[in-house]
């Protein structure tokens, strides 16, 4: 966070005259990156605004107005995908905030085997999402999966994690949390470590309890970390595709479809215009939700 202060400071005026002679900072240094980014990211993004309004075969396109979008909000399985995307993003980012914060506080306290715990919690972040998805699909099998077999030992009848339509989306979200909570934890650890010890010293002199320490010192001072974790995992949750595709392919039925999986299914089916409309919907959703969210999180932070 400390580096953000170096934002947009206007250069000294004398620098410009000097720069014209022979700038040590030539503008063409931007070019290689700018060309790749413009051609392969910006151009398709702008093109998507047009193609989402067409019936499109990649070779020719017929302008059909807002039909694709109308379909997106009319077809029950597409609406389902929209709702699921929101549920998934809220559930995963909420759990990552709570669990990540708890783990970070635990790992910065006087606890044995800190190094081991940190490594073990963080490692899944680096593992292939598809590999994790397949592994948990096997573990979550309703009758032969290890999770339900273990629950049965305790006399609990485990649910049909991925085959129950009401549960499938949440089961995938749980695996997402399992895989991603390590990142939230290390971000929180960085946040906790950055809190000056004086605050706790002052709180101790005032006779603060452990809970008060957490509620009035740790929690407010971790707000930047919380903002980061929420933004990051919320965007990730809205865009998620690979885990869902590896575990349920949106099923059973359309029970765990998200916008990203709908985009892929429509693409596979050859409905390129509809697929692109899905992309635009996702883009608008992220813009509408994430921009106010980050502004809110950062404004509160300014009040401290």
């Amino acid at each position: 966070m400390a580096v953000s202060s170096m934002g947009n400071v206007a250069g000294a005026p004398s620098q410009r005259a000097q720069a014209q002679k022979r700038s040590p900072y030539p503008g063409w240094f931007y070019l290689p990156a700018a060309i790749i980014y413009a051609v392969l990211f910006l151009a398709p993004t702008f093109a998507s605004l047009y193609f989402s309004l067409t019936r499109w075969t990649l070779f020719d396109s017929v302008f059909i107005g807002f039909d694709n979008f109308a379909q997106f909000f009319r077809e029950p399985f597409l609406v389902k995908g929209l709702v699921n995307t929101l549920i998934y993003a809220v559930v995963t980012s909420g759990l990552k905030v709570v669990i990540g914060m708890a783990l970070a506080i635990m790992l910065t306290s006087q606890i044995v085997a800190r190094g081991y715990l940190r490594s073990v919690i963080f490692f899944p972040v680096l593992v292939s999402t598809v590999g994790v998805g397949i592994t948990f699909t096997v573990l979550m099998h309703p009758t032969q999966g290890m999770i339900n077999e273990t629950l049965a030992l305790f006399g609990i009848a485990g649910p049909g994690w991925l085959v129950d339509p009401r549960l499938a989306l949440f089961s995938v979200a749980l695996v997402d949390v399992w895989k991603g909570v390590g990142l939230a934890t290390v971000i929180y650890i960085a946040g906790v470590v950055a809190i000056p010890k004086d605050y706790y010293e002052a709180a101790r002199i005032d006779g603060a309890t452990k809970w008060q320490n957490f509620r009035y010192v740790t929690l407010p001072l971790m707000r930047p970390a919380t903002a980061t974790v929420i933004t990051l995992s919320f965007i990730g949750g809205l865009r998620t595709f690979d885990l869902i595709w590896a575990m349920t392919k949106g099923g059973p039925g359309f029970a765990s479809d998200t916008i990203a999986s709908v985009i892929y299914k429509q693409y596979q089916a050859g409905f390129y215009g509809l697929s692109t409309a899905g992309n635009v919907v996702l883009f608008v959703l992220i813009a509408v939700l994430v921009v106010p969210l980050t502004m809110l999180l950062n404004r509160k932070q300014g009040h401290e």
């Binding site: 051609v39 392969l40 990211f41 151009a43 398709p44 993004t45 093109a47 998507s48 193609f51 499109w56 990649l58 809205l238 865009r239 990203a260 985009i263 892929y264 693409y267 390129y272 697929s275 692109t276 992309n279 635009v280 996702l282 883009f283 992220i286």
Partner: peptide, 10 residues
Amino acid sequence: PPAVVPTIWV
């Protein structure tokens, strides 16, 4: 999120 089909088109 990258616009998939337009990227394929490009």
